[in-house]
Design a protein around this nucleic acid. Structure first.
Lengths: 253, 253
DNA sequence: CGTAAGCTATGACGTAACGATAGGGTCAAT
DNA sequence: ATTGACCCTATCGTTACGTCATAGCTTACG
């Protein structure tokens, strides 16, 4: 029979922790004195060992309770599920580490960095997706040279560049979103669309009418785009496509 | 001016989250209507972007608040500190993963595994330390062959073996601890000490008197040992050394 | 035997970052 | 005026305890 402090010292945990385990029924002392003092047996200690083991490998107290209380519990399966979970956590951490790393580097003198890196994790990742998608499409249509030129150019943007680019993008979207109760041919809308194309030309690649039209389609056809754009305003993607098509029609005349 | 739902949808977060950020002063809307509706400006949105970025890379809301609110804050330093933290977390996860992995394997048919692995993280890691320490010492004193023989043997223990070993170790310690109010030469104590040496011989290596005596010293000289042993009972390590020395003296006669 | 030191007990609040109600106003359109 | 979509505040729940606060128990010492 061990008193609580002995147990706590032995296991290297606090008394409060033992109180807690008692409270949630994870480890209840075999006996209590009439004064209410907890008395632990050797069996209690063994169970505590188990608890600490599973705790060390990251199980929650609830899970540990199930594992220990149900003898016919499938521990192996539990461990395997747990492994998956740990793997996911680890991967998240690795992503975070990479991003942090790159952010630090960018602070160390505006070194060139790609937008995918700094803004990875931003929900406003439209730019990123845009680039990716365009890369694939463009490779098929025009061969590698141009795409590589784009990547070369964008790879030299600094953090501030990307921030500005992002802000501008959002700005244009919002301006168009605000006119969604008008026609796609609305002058304000068309002005924004024109700026949008110019913006792409300035910052990514020479945005021909053909490409620009295809981009409009992409906004509706590719759910990743649609989702991102419609965040500004539901239905914006479709409206944007119409406006871009209208713009192209006008320009081609 | 954007209403809360627009902001939430735009950023892909919940309204509750925005309430929360408002509450803790992390992101307070520029205005509120007379009805109490929150109205967010573009600046608010930009700040939100920043918040989400730092959140993505694992900063706490409090930390983000400091980073954003204090313009002359050393972000680079903050990022570097943060990186350290993430690295530690990652390493913890890796340890956990390894242990889980090995535990699963041991369940898959009692495959051989080393105690360092299964019981790593146990606070009752005395065995592990013991092995490590002995490995170092022994390599100097007796060359590699014997140490390697030990490692070879222990590497084939199964989970059950280790559990039994561990239980026995604790048992012997406790038995000795219970007699600490007697002399180290107490017969019960000496009996336990003899068993302890036999146990080491059976499970680890041929424990000569010389080694056994050195082991006793180790228990007091090496704080890692002392700490672990004294968990059973404060002062046990010293008592154990005396008892072991006495035992060796007797045997040598 | 009285008392102080040391150990123990039971609450109850605090932590991080929200999710999930509950209960109840507001706004715009029908 | 009613409906439906949207907004508000307030509070509890979550995880695994840490940290008091308040008070009873035990034990050694004078």
């Amino acid at each position: 029979m061990y008193k609580i402090k002995e147990v706590a010292d032995f296991a290297g945990i606090s008394i409060r922790t033992l109180h807690h385990y008692d409270h949630i029924g994870l480890l209840q002392p075999a006996e209590t004195t009439e004064a209410g003092y907890r008395l632990y047996t050797k069996e209690n200690l063994e169970r505590l060992q188990q608890i600490l083991f599973f705790k060390e490998i990251g199980f929650s107290l609830q899970e540990i309770k199930e594992i220990l209380d149900r003898p016919n519990f499938d521990r192996k399966k539990a461990l395997e599920n747990h492994r998956e979970l740990l793997l996911k956590k680890k991967q998240r951490l690795e992503t975070m580490l990479q991003t942090v790393q790159e952010t630090v580097q960018s602070l160390e003198g505006g070194i060139e960095m790609s937008g995918q890196d700094l803004f990875k994790g931003f929900d406003m990742s439209e730019i990123e997706e845009h680039q990716k998608k365009y890369s694939e499409e463009a490779k098929q249509r025009y061969g590698k040279e141009r795409v590589e030129a784009v990547e070369k150019r964008t790879s030299q943007y600094t953090k501030e560049d990307w921030a500005r680019i992002q802000a501008t993008t959002g700005d244009i979207y919002r301006r168009i979103a605000e006119r969604m109760d008008h026609e796609p041919s609305d002058p304000e809308v068309q002005k924004a669309v024109a700026e949008w194309r110019q913006f792409i030309t300035d910052h990514y690649y020479d945005c021909t009418l053909e490409i620009f039209r295809g981009l409009g389609d992409l906004y509706v056809d590719d759910p990743r785009f649609t989702k991102n754009i419609d965040k500004f305003q539901p239905g914006l993607a479709k409206f944007l496509r119409e406006a871009m098509h209208y713009y192209c029609d006008q320009q081609e005349k």
